[in-house]
């Protein structure tokens, strides 16, 4: 089966600036992938290329083996929610549902009605008169009622308060659990997505820095603490960062096996620290990890 989303050598420039370049990754069916990176890392560009809102300058993106947005059938497979949850503000919620029904052959009207009733959002209200959280939920409902096999959410909770955030994520997770939807969601804060995702892609400066299953990534990375001015022990795949003083040396490393040297103690690394370590050392990711992600460990 073709991957829900696969991009190869993908790049997009705006004028003379590359927003994204040399980007290759494959999203596994049924996975929930967190796409993380600082502002301006190219997350939105990547997602818009994936749904066909942008055309690539170089490379390719495919959705279930097809180029995106080339046919109504290809469009029907993907649910996309843009960062600002755009809605026609002058239309009522009921009008928006009717629009969704008219423009999507796979539309599930009962789901849409039921979900909005559950949230207590009245159909007669104009979209422009809803709160930010409600607008996000209406936009998400429109996206989910399409019954897409791949759900792409661009910074979905960035503008929401903590309560609305939780409700929003609960809706996404319920859909993924019920229907096995593949989900890709982006954020510049990993903590927002850590609990809900099982895969992680880190983008930095328009390139993929990390790509892998979260459990696997956490398994492979450690903080090593050893004596001052000691050189790193042997048997490491990569040293991401090194901080040394007279008294002790702290390393963030990717392991290649257990550390044998008794002078070093190992500590687990949080996902957030891992992401930051890769983002601080952009070359590290492209050197080591891009090859592994598509190699034996993926």
């Amino acid at each position: 089966m073709s991957a829900p989303l696969e991009v190869t050598g993908l790049g997009r420039s705006f004028g003379h600036t590359w927003a994204l370049r040399h980007c290759s990754l494959r999203i596994e069916p049924g996975s929930i992938t967190a796409l993380v990176g600082p502002n301006g890392a190219g997350k939105s560009t990547l997602l818009q290329l994936a749904v066909g809102l942008l055309t690539p300058t170089e490379g390719t993106a495919t959705i279930f083996g097809q180029p995106p947005a080339t046919s109504a059938a290809a469009l029907a497979q993907v649910g996309y929610l843009a960062q600002d949850h755009p809605l026609y503000r002058g239309l009522t919620v009921g009008d928006l549902l009717r629009m969704g029904r008219g423009m999507n052959p796979t539309w599930d009207h009962d789901f849409a009605l039921g979900h909005l009733a559950e949230l207590g959002i009245p159909l007669s209200r104009k979209a422009g008169g809803l709160s930010g959280g409600q607008q996000a939920q209406v936009a998400l409902t429109l996206t989910l009622a399409k019954r897409p096999a791949l759900l792409i959410l661009d910074e979905p909770v960035a503008s929401l308060d903590p309560l609305a955030r939780r409700d929003f994520m609960a809706t996404v997770l319920a859909d993924a659990a019920d229907r096995g939807t593949t989900v890709v969601l982006s954020s510049h804060v990993i903590s927002e997505l850590e609990r809900v995702s099982d895969h992680l892609v880190v983008l930095g400066s328009g390139q993929v820095q990390v790509d892998g299953a979260i459990d696997d990534l956490l398994d492979r990375h450690r903080i090593l603490v050893g004596p001052g001015y000691a050189s790193p022990p042997t048997g490491l795949r990569h040293v991401l960062s090194e901080h040394t003083t007279e008294r002790q040396t702290t390393l963030i490393v990717e392991l290649d096996g257990p550390v044998q040297d008794p002078r070093w103690t190992t500590h687990p690394l949080s996902l957030e620290d891992l992401v930051l370590a890769y983002l601080r050392d952009p070359d590290a990711g492209t050197r080591t990890f891009a090859t592994q992600a598509t190699g034996s460990l993926s």
Partner: peptide
Amino acid sequence: ESGTLRLAWTQSVTRTR
């Protein structure tokens, strides 16, 4: 301007139609 093109163009209808 309002960003709704991103809503319209990600429904199951091609841009041309």
